[in-house]
Amino acid sequence: MINKSALALLITGLLLPPASTVHAVSLPADFPPLPPSDRAVKEYVTAVNADNSVTFRLFAPLAKEVKLFTGATPESFVSHPMNKDAAGIWTFRSKVLAPNLYEYFFNVDGFRSIDSGSANTKPQRQVNTSQILVPGSLLDVRAVPHGELRILTYHSAELGSERQLAVWTPPGVDAAAKALPVLYFYHGFGDSGRSAIDQGRIPQIMDNLLAEGKIKPMLVVIPDTETDTASTTPENVVPQDRRKVFYPANARAADRELIHDIIPLISQRFNTRTDAAGRALAGLSQGGYQALVSGLSHLDHFGALATFSGVTITTVPNAAVSAQLDKPQEINRQLSNFTVVVGETDSVTGKDIAGLKQTLEQKGIKFDYHAYPQLGHEMDVWRPAYAEFVQKLFR
């Protein structure tokens, strides 16, 4: 049995093993080179310059060719050749960029790579893209009163699994006596539950708009759009069957979870309004389809609805949505705002939104429509669309 003195020495790290038991560690002969220790870290990682240009850097001394790719969609990707210095650091300096959150990745001898010198990656189920924030926009962390981002772990009875969601709460929510309205927001296909937070920048947008007096205090609830049941795991569905198999099954499961698990959970954990006018529902891409399905299937639960570049019943039929669209007077009476947004060059859901727009117009359903010029299926559509939508809520 070890005595108390020896135990104390062990705990404080003063009791060291005998020198004879310490062995030098030798690295394998093919171990890749380490970044140069005689250079400051900022000299070999990507950084924003004083003039809002960006110097992209990648330490890859053994690579024969490295290219930088910028852009958010395959149609907008631009390739930039990078130059390597004597220490093996590849660089490319951009032009001066407007304030925004930009996506990029590297092609290293044919291999698509994130920026290994940055922790800021796009939140995806299969991570392959990095991000960098050029300051000066609504996306910044500013010196304003900050809300909180709370992660709730809960049991979904509908899905039979343990789940997580995020909730943005305004400053002082715990002391607020007045019940708050709630916006439920769904992220897009292929992204993780942090997409709306880290890339959509919902916490920063809400903090800044609230500080400017442009929005009312509210909760923003961000569920995981993917239900990940045995029949709704997207990796198990081949891409050509996604709209026929995955979207309908996942939408049904997520709808049950929202109505029977999530909304009751939020009502239990926070002081929230329980009337339909105190709830809104929105989403982008796949999440836009989810918002459309749940919003119109349970019209009596919500007072506002938005789909940003969403899949629609134009390509993924839903009987409940179709039935509700045949009751335009009910929709017009119930929804204070119905927003439909798309990028003009969207090759992913442009057909979906065009079909929905035509249907709404034919049936006389009131809606706000915005097509963003020269943009496709990307966050440069969805972030400003979100910021505009929340300013219309709960007035």
Rank of each mutant, 00 (worst) to 15 (best):
4 K>P: 08
11 I>G: 10
13 G>K: 12
17 P>H: 09
28 P>G: 09
28 P>Q: 13
29 A>K: 14
29 A>P: 07
43 E>I: 07
46 T>D: 03
57 R>A: 00
67 K>R: 13
70 T>V: 13
71 G>R: 09
75 E>C: 01
81 P>Q: 14
89 I>S: 10
97 L>A: 09
114 I>N: 08
120 N>R: 11
123 P>N: 11
137 S>F: 02
145 P>Y: 12
147 G>L: 01
149 L>E: 09
155 H>P: 05
157 A>W: 01
159 L>T: 06
159 L>Y: 02
160 G>Q: 12
162 E>G: 05
164 Q>R: 09
171 P>A: 06
172 G>Q: 09
181 P>W: 09
186 Y>S: 02
192 S>C: 12
193 G>M: 14
194 R>P: 11
196 A>R: 12
198 D>V: 11
198 D>G: 03
201 R>Y: 08
204 Q>F: 03
207 D>V: 01
210 L>K: 05
214 K>Y: 06
226 E>T: 06
230 A>G: 10
232 T>C: 01
233 T>I: 09
234 P>N: 06
239 P>I: 15
244 K>L: 15
255 D>S: 15
258 L>W: 00
258 L>T: 12
262 I>T: 02
268 Q>F: 13
269 R>V: 15
269 R>C: 02
271 N>G: 15
272 T>H: 02
274 T>R: 01
280 A>R: 10
285 S>C: 00
285 S>Y: 08
288 G>K: 11
289 Y>F: 10
293 V>I: 05
296 L>S: 04
308 F>W: 13
311 V>Q: 08
317 P>D: 11
318 N>M: 12
320 A>D: 06
323 A>R: 13
326 D>S: 15
330 E>Y: 01
332 N>T: 01
332 N>F: 08
334 Q>W: 05
350 G>S: 05
350 G>I: 11
352 D>R: 03
353 I>D: 04
355 G>K: 00
359 T>L: 00
361 E>I: 00
371 A>F: 05
373 P>D: 12
374 Q>H: 15
381 V>P: 03
381 V>F: 12
385 A>R: 04
387 A>M: 11
388 E>C: 07
394 F>Y: 00
